[in-house]
Simulated scan of single mutants.
Amino acid sequence: MHTYNTKFTLAAATLAFALAGPALAEWNEGGGEQEEALSLTPNLENGREVYEVCAACHLPEGWGMEDGTFPQLAGQHAVVSIKQLADIRSKNRDNPTMYPFALEKSIGGPQAIADVVAYMEKLPMNPDWGKGPYNELFPQYAKGKELYEANCVECHGENGMGIPEKFYPRINGQHYEYMLRQFEWIRDGKRRNANPEMVEQIENFTDEDMKAVINYASRLPVPEEDLAESADWRNPDFD
């Protein structure tokens, strides 16, 4: 399976964070824990053990739930997951369901964060993730493609791979229902750690625009080497 070099992306993100101007610093408020986790060398064996706490909701495979209750974590850039974990722990992102499980007493300190996100990044992704209802035959698909290319490509990339050095997540392979909920919260100001540039970019999207663009994003292909061989794949670490 293809994965990014975790050590490289952590180092690159640390450098980008250090060189960032005030605007990025204000948005990216993960705090000292985020910076420390970015600077550490991950221990994948410990990451596997820490992930046992996460597996109860996100599943042993890291695939989350198609109904959007829990996102797919497998294959996500480690630096993105570090930021989100640090934001939840510092209460810069509201997630009351996850908060108690993300605390240091539950999973450990910055080293544990670095370890578990590196482990998640290397998990093969679900080949049958939750997609939106409109395929290429529907006008909503074409509308979503147009909106995506005009508003999303610069940060998330043509194929939805994101930019780890800037903490922009990969969104290809993510469940439609999860992305739809997060998009709505970001648009409506309910997600406090959202990038303000994204908030401004999508603030005028109607509900129909939102559904169309997320439908398109949910149907972006995932590189074959990043996928599990089948939807029946089981994580051998949890057999």
Score class of each variant (00 low, 15 high):
22 P>M: 00
48 R>Q: 13
37 A>L: 06
44 L>T: 07
65 M>Y: 12
74 A>K: 01
42 P>Y: 01
62 G>A: 00
39 S>Q: 04
73 L>V: 11
31 G>A: 02
55 A>M: 09
69 T>S: 12
33 E>Y: 04
48 R>I: 04
57 C>Y: 08
32 G>K: 13
52 E>D: 11
85 L>I: 13
36 E>N: 06
30 G>L: 02
77 H>Y: 10
84 Q>V: 09
63 W>Q: 05
74 A>D: 07
57 C>L: 13
62 G>T: 06
87 D>C: 08
69 T>R: 11
23 A>F: 13
82 I>L: 14
30 G>T: 03
72 Q>R: 13
56 A>L: 11
41 T>V: 14
21 G>A: 10
40 L>K: 03
48 R>E: 11
55 A>G: 08
59 L>D: 00
86 A>G: 01
84 Q>C: 05
73 L>G: 02
82 I>H: 05
58 H>Y: 08
91 K>F: 10
64 G>N: 00
49 E>K: 12
74 A>Q: 01
83 K>Q: 13
80 V>M: 02
31 G>W: 03
45 E>Y: 05
44 L>N: 01
43 N>R: 04
87 D>A: 10
76 Q>M: 14
74 A>R: 03
21 G>P: 06
64 G>T: 09
24 L>F: 09
29 E>H: 15
85 L>Y: 00
70 F>G: 04
55 A>V: 10
59 L>P: 02
55 A>D: 02
48 R>H: 07
44 L>S: 02
39 S>Y: 11
53 V>G: 03
34 Q>S: 12
86 A>D: 06
71 P>V: 10
25 A>F: 06
20 A>L: 00
63 W>M: 10
69 T>N: 01
53 V>M: 03
68 G>H: 03
51 Y>F: 15
75 G>F: 07
71 P>R: 08
78 A>F: 06
25 A>Q: 15
28 N>K: 11
82 I>W: 07
45 E>H: 09
33 E>M: 14
64 G>V: 06
44 L>A: 10
59 L>H: 12
34 Q>T: 03
50 V>S: 00
22 P>I: 00
59 L>W: 10
48 R>M: 12
88 I>F: 04
54 C>T: 08
37 A>D: 00
70 F>P: 06
42 P>N: 01
84 Q>T: 12
61 E>S: 14
48 R>V: 08
62 G>H: 09
81 S>P: 01
51 Y>M: 02
54 C>G: 08
81 S>Q: 15
41 T>Q: 11
84 Q>P: 10
46 N>Q: 11
35 E>S: 10
83 K>P: 00
33 E>T: 13
52 E>Q: 15
40 L>G: 05
82 I>T: 05
63 W>V: 04
52 E>W: 14
76 Q>L: 14
89 R>G: 02
81 S>N: 15
72 Q>V: 13
29 E>K: 15
50 V>G: 00
57 C>V: 11
51 Y>H: 05
65 M>C: 05
75 G>M: 08
24 L>V: 14
53 V>P: 02
20 A>C: 07
80 V>N: 02
81 S>R: 08
66 E>S: 14
29 E>W: 09
60 P>I: 04
64 G>E: 03
69 T>M: 14
87 D>V: 03
55 A>S: 11
76 Q>H: 08
61 E>F: 07
50 V>C: 05
38 L>Q: 01
74 A>L: 05
89 R>T: 10
78 A>L: 04
47 G>A: 01
21 G>D: 14
64 G>L: 11
20 A>H: 03
40 L>C: 06
57 C>F: 12
85 L>K: 03
82 I>M: 07
50 V>N: 04
85 L>V: 13
